[in-house]
Computed example of a mutant assay.
Amino acid sequence: MTDYNNSGSLKKENNLTDEQKHLIELQKENKDLRMEIDILKQVALPPVLFEFRGIENR
């Protein structure tokens, strides 16, 4: 109830601290970058090179 009193909203996103919002944004960016890396690995390197370079092919 204190969150409602502070922000005037019951929505979770309106009651997050700046640090919590920043952390969520960084987690989303990290997830996106990991997906981009996975795509680039599949396009740029044949599977044999993954094994040779010790890169984990997820």
Rank of each mutant, 00 (worst) to 15 (best):
I55C: 01
R58C: 07
D18F: 11
K31N: 12
Y4V: 02
S7D: 03
S7V: 02
I39Q: 09
F50S: 05
P46I: 05
F52D: 04
G8M: 05
F52K: 15
P47K: 10
K21T: 04
T17D: 07
L26H: 03
N15G: 02
L45W: 11
V43R: 10
D38Q: 14
K11A: 04
R34Q: 15
L16R: 14
L10S: 09
L40D: 08
L26F: 08
N6Y: 00
I55A: 00
E56M: 10
E25R: 14
M35Y: 09
M35C: 01
E25P: 02
P47Y: 01
S9M: 06
E13W: 13
T2R: 12
S9Q: 02
N5W: 02
G54T: 02
N6L: 11
E56K: 11
T2N: 12
L10F: 14
M35T: 06
V48A: 02
M35R: 14
F50H: 14
H22W: 08
Q20T: 01
Y4W: 07
D3S: 08
G54N: 03
E13L: 10
R34N: 13
I24A: 12
L40M: 13
D18E: 14
E29Q: 15
G8D: 02
F50D: 06
L16A: 05
E56Y: 10
L10N: 05
Q20M: 13
N5P: 00
Q42R: 15
N14Y: 11
L16C: 05
L10Q: 09
T2G: 04
E51D: 01
R34L: 15
N15T: 10
L33H: 00
N15L: 10
